[in-house]
């Protein structure tokens, strides 16, 4: 019973958007739009689940003074300050919805931290490539050549070396062979996701309900 009810609900609610797609009547699509909005709210409620786990984990780390515990305090402080100014915007009914401090913290802390963190990867991806990109076989050589052409095609130096041929060649790679492979990947992944959806709706795939049998 405790598993059957969720399975029946999954089937009924899962079939509804499919039904609404093929029967575009105003009353049916109205319910669909309401479900869209309602499930967005449920998803928003799921966010604190992750937050509770993270806070619990870090509080334990601080309590037991495990290695690196001061950084757990920094993490929690960042979380609390940012979340406070995010939520306070709603309470104080700001014009944009966001408290000015929230925006200021984003512009001067979150955004530069994110950009620098990602820019740091340039060094590590490049050094990893140096080790991995050896023209050992046909496939590795193709990968290496495509990467070099695309990189040179993005900077003026590439055109300077080849008399303006590198940018068109790079564009051709992006728009033809790369687009073809991406299209194949997209079609394959979409078919996989659709078949997984059918399995979930029909109750064949049940792992999302957890392992317990009760």
């Amino acid at each position: 019973m405790r598993r059957t009810i969720p399975l029946v609900l999954t089937f009924v609610v899962g079939m509804y958007p499919i039904f609404a797609f093929f029967v575009p009547h105003a009353s049916i699509s109205g319910v669909n739009q309401w479900l869209d909005r309602a499930l967005m709210i449920v998803a928003a409620f799921a966010l604190p689940l992750g937050v509770v786990n993270l806070v619990g984990m870090n509080l334990t780390k601080i309590k037991q003074k495990r290695e690196g515990w001061p950084y757990a305090i920094v993490l929690l402080a960042g979380l609390v300050v940012m979340a406070y100014f995010g939520v306070i915007g709603v309470i104080t009914r700001q014009h944009t919805g966001f408290h000015p401090t929230f925006q200021m913290l984003f512009d001067n802390m979150v955004s530069p931290l994110q950009a620098t963190m990602f820019s740091l990867l340039a060094f590590y991806v490049a050094s990893a490539a140096y080790r991995a990109f050896r023209a050992r076989n046909v496939e590795a050589t193709i990968l290496l050549v495509a990467a070099i052409i695309v990189m040179l095609g993005r900077i003026p130096f590439g055109d300077m070396l080849t008399g303006g041929r590198m940018t068109p060649l790079s564009e051709w790679i992006m728009n033809r062979p790369n687009a073809a492979a991406q299209r194949g990947i997209i079609i394959g992944a979409a078919l996989g996701a659709a078949s997984m959806s059918i399995r979930v709706i029909l109750g064949i795939e049940r792992t999302y309900l957890g392992k317990s049998r009760d």
Binding site: R37, M40, I41, A43, A44, L47, P48, G50, V51, L54, G68, Y71, A72, V74, L75, L76, A77, G78, L79, V80, V81, M82, A83, Y84, F85, G86, V87, G89, V90, G97, F98, F102, L105, F106, M109, V110, L113, Q114, M117
Partner: peptide
């Protein structure tokens, strides 16, 4: 490690703010 921890915490806090203002408030 200080900056990394701060980034992790603030990113999650930012996400909480966005969800509150853009999803929970209007809906």
């Amino acid at each position: 490690r200080f900056a990394e921890s701060l980034f992790a915490g603030m990113s999650l806090g930012y996400y909480i703010g966005i969800v509150t203002v853009q999803t929970l408030q209007p809906n």
